[in-house]
């Protein structure tokens, strides 16, 4: 099996990423504006109005406590949404065939879409962070952990969106997972509360939720407090990243839903 020169692969990779970025910038009213409005409402209602009556959580004001979770929620949702909607619509209108007939290796295709999702996820995360400054000050306990966690979480959910898009046959199929799985996992992943508040049984159940680890590791990076061991959270993130990447690659190689 012959391989392509590295600069060829890099050109193809940049082309895919730029196409993805161009797509979400072109439809910014659908991709950038709604998360900004949603996050603003969370800050105003949960952080400001209700949060002021809740008091302290893990030594921080409620607003300070939920800011990392809300940023992470925005990153996760947007990374996932970008890849699932872009890849599925390309599959649906068959423009994905442009890539499939070209010599671009599968791992370059996958990486291109994932980085496209990460770009949107991190862009929204940055906007959410800037907006949070209007409501509270920004702590930064450990910037390296913060950036690494947010990057890896964005990659994990971009990969999730890719796999969802591969299995999807109709537009309904790309909304089922975010509505019935992703949203409950985010809400039960400790965005709005510390698991210390939960009964023992639900605290144990929370531990099988991958988002629980992401939110807590991210919160550790910003506030220095976490409900889980940060090293363990990192190991979980690495495991999810590798497993989902290999699985997505396997599906691409098999041509699942793409080649007949």
């Amino acid at each position: 099996m012959h391989t392509l020169p590295l600069n060829y692969k890099l050109t193809a990779f940049k082309t895919i990423v730029w196409k993805e970025v161009r797509r979400f910038l072109r439809i910014w009213v659908q991709t950038l504006v709604p998360p900004v409005i949603t996050i603003s409402l969370y800050f105003v209602i949960f952080g400001n109005l209700i949060g002021s009556r809740i008091g302290q959580m893990n030594g921080f004001t409620y607003m300070e406590f939920i800011v990392p979770g809300l940023i992470m929620m925005a990153v996760i949702n947007n990374s996932y949404a970008n890849v699932v909607s872009s890849f599925f619509s390309q599959k649906y209108q068959r423009s994905i065939e442009e890539l499939l007939v070209s010599p671009v290796p599968n791992y370059v295709i996958l990486s291109g879409f994932v980085i496209g999702g990460v770009t949107r996820g991190l862009a929204i995360g940055l906007i959410a962070t800037i907006m949070s400054l209007f409501f509270t000050g920004l702590h930064m306990h450990n910037i390296a952990i913060t950036l690494l966690v947010v990057l890896m979480s964005s990659i994990v959910f971009s990969l999730g969106g890719f796999i969802n898009a591969i299995y999807a046959n109709k537009f309904d199929d790309i909304t089922i997972i975010p509505t019935f799985i992703l949203t409950p996992l985010i809400y039960l992943g400790g965005v709005f509360y510390s698991v210390d508040l939960l009964p023992d049984f639900w605290r144990l159940v929370s531990q099988i939720n991958p988002i629980f680890y992401m939110v807590n590791a991210f919160r550790y990076g910003i506030l220095g407090v976490s409900d889980v061991n940060v090293v363990f959270a990192f190991l979980m993130l690495v495991m999810f990243t590798v497993t989902l990447f290999l699985f997505a690659l396997f599906l691409l190689r098999r041509g699942k839903g793409l080649r007949h």
Binding site: L4, P5, N7, Y8, K9, T11, A12, K14, T15, I16, W18, K19, R22, R26, S89, Q90, Q93, R94, S95, E97, E98, L99, V101, S102, P103, V104
Partner: peptide
């Protein structure tokens, strides 16, 4: 390859469609 069915992104600009394909070929 020129397929039987039109299979480009209808919302992309004509020029971008061709340039992007060039990128896929390095």
């Amino acid at each position: 390859v020129v397929p039987q069915e039109v299979n480009f992104n209808h919302f992309e600009k004509v020029f971008d469609i061709v340039v992007t394909q060039g990128g896929y070929y390095g």
